[in-house]
Lab assay of single mutants.
Amino acid sequence: MEVRTIKVFTTVDNINLHTQVVDMSMTYGQQFGPTYLDGADVTKIKPHNSHEGKTFYVLPNDDTLRVEAFEYYHTTDPSFLGRYMSALNHTKKWKYPQVNGLTSIKWADNNCYLATALLTLQQIELKFNPPALQDAYYRARAGEAANFCALILAYCNKTVGELGDVRETMSYLFQHANLDSCKRVLNVVCKTCGQQQTTLKGVEAVMYMGTLSYEQFKKGVQIPCTCGKQATKYLVQQESPFVMMSAPPAQYELKHGTFTCASEYTGNYQCGHYKHITSKETLYCIDGALLTKSSEYKGPITDVFYKENSYTTTIK
């Protein structure tokens, strides 16, 4: 009895394709271990004539594949690729409408935090270190965002349907971005203890939790000093293409032309909904596939993004 075979390709990165001759009487799992086709788990399936010449994702289970996976995804987590594939199996079914010149995501599976993050990423200057993220990001900007969303979920250790947080998501993504040249110098002034300067680099240099107003941050924000008295913390120097200011959701007025974009969060910790506000020729609110415009805006804002380049204080 002759062994019926077909020729397929296996890959971990969709760049390096490895030619395989597979036995049609055995499952993919018996031949390769966990195997995925377009995100779908085909591990328990036997090869079919229609699979001839198709590319299958496999887990990096030998040295060659491990090197290829690390170079593309910059992670050695053995569960990463499987999590990416199972997320992709959902995100490829989502709709990605162009809204006001940006790629958004039609609401499904509690994905409003991903839509808000995706919209924000198209408006701030950011370059990702893992080629996987950078490639998928370019495709997302062009309207094909399924891979990018699935990668975000995998890097953030999230599953489809789980509630997510924009600030946490951005923080994970910033860790995989090139923020080497970003720098922030802060000064804390206390009447009792004097003053202390701190220099922050990388992710810490672009994120701040405690106030939404970048102007206020430049002037000074009140913080408790270690001595128990009130101290003032203010920005001395900022070198970065953008800054992200966050605070627990509270009524906040966004003035046209003073910011790049913002995240609105309605609801409580267990259950809520994100919308995205962007400042173009007027203010726009993007909620999944829905767009509304207004000249002014007041609502429960939790993150505001500002364009920056270089700032030095005039406070002496």
Rank of each mutant, 00 (worst) to 15 (best):
E2R: 10
E2K: 07
V3H: 12
V3L: 13
R4Q: 12
R4K: 12
T5M: 11
I6W: 04
V8G: 06
V8I: 14
F9H: 14
T10M: 11
T10D: 10
T11C: 01
V12N: 04
N14I: 11
N16G: 05
L17D: 07
L17Y: 01
H18W: 03
T19C: 13
Q20R: 13
Q20D: 05
Q20E: 08
V21Q: 13
V21T: 13
V22K: 04
M24L: 13
M24W: 05
M24H: 12
S25N: 13
M26V: 14
Y28C: 00
Y28R: 12
G29N: 05
G29Y: 12
G29C: 14
Q31K: 09
P34S: 12
P34C: 14
P34H: 08
L37T: 09
L37V: 11
D38L: 09
D41A: 13
T43W: 06
I45D: 14
I45Y: 14
I45T: 14
H48M: 12
H48V: 10
H48P: 11
S50C: 13
H51V: 07
H51Y: 04
H51A: 06
H51C: 05
H51E: 11
E52D: 10
G53N: 08
F56I: 14
Y57H: 11
V58R: 07
L59H: 15
T64F: 09
L65S: 10
R66M: 13
R66S: 12
E68T: 04
A69L: 11
F70T: 09
E71Y: 04
E71A: 09
Y72Q: 10
Y72R: 11
T75N: 11
T75Y: 01
T76E: 10
T76I: 09
D77A: 05
S79V: 14
S79A: 10
L81R: 02
G82E: 15
G82M: 15
R83S: 06
M85L: 14
S86C: 07
S86T: 12
A87T: 02
N89K: 13
K92S: 08
K92P: 02
K92D: 05
Q98A: 12
V99G: 00
G101I: 01
G101S: 04
G101D: 08
L102G: 00
L102P: 02
T103I: 12
S104W: 08
S104M: 11
I105W: 03
W107A: 05
W107R: 05
N110L: 00
N110Y: 03
N111T: 01
L114S: 08
L114P: 03
L114Q: 04
A115P: 02
A115C: 14
T116R: 01
T116C: 15
A117I: 02
A117F: 02
L118H: 02
L119Y: 01
T120N: 07
L121R: 03
L121H: 01
L121E: 00
I124N: 04
E125W: 05
E125D: 14
N129I: 09
P130S: 04
P131S: 02
A132E: 00
L133G: 04
Q134D: 06
D135R: 06
D135I: 07
A142N: 14
G143I: 01
G143C: 07
N147V: 08
N147H: 14
A150Q: 04
A150S: 01
A150L: 01
L151G: 01
L151I: 00
L151C: 04
L153M: 08
L153A: 08
A154Y: 00
Y155A: 08
Y155P: 06
Y155K: 01
N157I: 03
N157P: 02
K158A: 12
K158E: 05
K158N: 00
K158V: 03
T159I: 11
V160C: 10
G161F: 04
G161H: 03
E162A: 13
G164P: 05
D165I: 06
V166D: 00
V166T: 00
R167F: 00
E168S: 15
S171E: 12
Y172D: 11
L173Y: 07
L173I: 11
F174V: 03
Q175S: 08
H176Y: 14
H176N: 06
H176A: 03
A177V: 07
N178E: 11
N178I: 06
N178M: 08
D180W: 09
S181W: 14
C182P: 01
K183Q: 12
R184F: 05
L186V: 15
N187V: 10
N187D: 06
N187T: 09
V188Y: 09
V188C: 07
V188N: 01
T192D: 13
C193D: 00
C193Q: 02
C193V: 00
Q195A: 13
Q196S: 11
T198H: 10
T199M: 08
T199F: 03
L200I: 08
K201T: 13
K201V: 11
G202F: 00
G202N: 07
G202I: 02
V203C: 09
A205N: 01
A205K: 04
A205L: 02
V206H: 03
V206Y: 04
M207W: 04
Y208C: 08
Y208R: 07
Y208T: 09
T211R: 00
T211G: 04
T211H: 05
L212H: 08
S213W: 06
S213H: 02
S213L: 02
S213F: 03
S213D: 11
Y214H: 07
Y214Q: 03
Y214S: 06
Y214W: 07
E215K: 07
Q216P: 05
F217H: 03
K219M: 13
G220Q: 02
V221C: 05
I223F: 13
I223S: 12
I223D: 04
C225F: 00
C225M: 03
T226V: 13
T226S: 14
T226W: 07
K229F: 08
Q230E: 13
Q230Y: 13
A231D: 01
A231P: 02
L235P: 00
V236N: 06
Q237E: 11
Q237I: 07
Q238G: 07
Q238L: 02
Q238I: 01
E239R: 11
E239F: 10
E239Q: 12
E239C: 10
S240G: 04
F242L: 01
F242V: 04
F242R: 03
M244K: 07
M244T: 00
M244V: 11
M245N: 11
M245L: 12
M245C: 14
A247W: 06
A247S: 10
P248L: 08
P248G: 14
P249D: 06
A250T: 14
Y252R: 00
E253G: 12
E253Y: 00
L254S: 02
K255Q: 06
K255H: 07
K255P: 02
K255M: 06
H256I: 15
H256D: 11
H256C: 15
G257W: 04
T258H: 10
F259R: 00
T260E: 08
Y265P: 00
Y265S: 09
T266K: 11
G267L: 15
G267M: 15
G267R: 15
Q270F: 15
C271E: 08
C271D: 14
G272F: 04
G272N: 00
Y274L: 10
Y274H: 05
K275C: 06
H276Q: 04
I277S: 00
I277H: 11
I277G: 01
I277K: 04
T278G: 10
T278Q: 08
S279D: 13
K280M: 11
K280I: 08
E281P: 00
L283Q: 00
Y284Q: 13
Y284E: 11
C285E: 05
C285S: 07
I286Q: 08
I286E: 01
I286T: 01
I286F: 04
D287Y: 01
G288Q: 00
G288D: 04
A289D: 15
L290P: 03
L290T: 12
L290Q: 12
L291Q: 10
T292I: 10
K293G: 05
S294N: 09
S295M: 11
S295L: 14
E296R: 10
E296P: 11
E296G: 08
E296A: 13
E296W: 09
Y297A: 07
Y297R: 04
Y297K: 08
K298T: 03
G299V: 08
G299L: 05
G299H: 01
P300I: 14
D303K: 02
D303S: 12
D303A: 08
V304G: 00
Y306R: 04
Y306G: 01
K307L: 12
N309G: 10
N309T: 15
N309Q: 09
T312E: 10
T312G: 09
T312R: 15
T314A: 12
I315D: 15
K316D: 15
